[in-house]
Amino acid sequence: MKSENFHLSDEQLLLFADGELTAHRADQIRAHLRACWDCRSRMAEVESTIAEFMQVHRQTLDPQVPPIDGPRALLRARLAELERTSHRNHRRPLLPALSLRRLAYLCALTLIIAFGARMVQHHAARNNITLPHDAGILPNPSLTPGATATTAPGSVCSMSDGEVVTPVSGSQRRRVFKEYGIAGAPSANYEVDYLITPGLGGVDDIRNLWPEPRYDTMWNSFVKDQLEEYLHRAVCGGRISLPAAQHEIASNWIIAYKKYFHTNRPLPEHLAGYQ
């Protein structure tokens, strides 16, 4: 599988340029950029536009920002005043400072807030408002059981970056979206991901692809990337067999993640790019 037929989206280029991707994803993009002149030239255009914007931004606003010395002195004086005032107020008991009218107002406000909160709870319970928060974090097994080309670790461990990083074609993405009944969904919200990644012997087959949420759940594609990377290293390091790794990631990647990272939630560093 080669990557020369695929190009990175503008969004992927910008996320990469802004350091918003996980290390694994950034490595994948870097590898693609090394191989693809088209994406590299678009990357240069993105950087050049950022530079132009920064020039306009600074040239427009910087002349209007006065020197800092005066405002700093003013801030310090105000802080000192605030400090003294709050010291004085701190010594004063609270209740005498509140008039009866203010107390009555506070009581009424508290009652209104409590009543409002109760109404919201009641309304939510009656209508059973639950967000489909974790919808799609696991593929539908009847549509995406997983598909592999090999069970020999030698073949996956000798893969080049370009083979491990195998973007899914636009037409394949559209097929997957259609198959999952979300043809009209914003494509940026999903990554059409391999259930069994090429780095673990998975293939570019619709039975091995599903639309994985990027943002709306903590169990998102960025977290799965970390598991894929871990399993690839574990297979190539001889700590786990390739068929076992394929089976675990295809059965339930979240359970596999919890097992290998010894956690019930994604580790904070794995959420560095997205949450």
Binding site: S9, D10, E11, L14, L15, I50, A188
Partner: peptide, 11 residues
């Protein structure tokens, strides 16, 4: 996601 899309669109 909205931040990312907004920046991409603007650029």
């Amino acid at each position: 996601g909205a931040v990312s899309l907004s920046l991409t669109r603007s650029l």
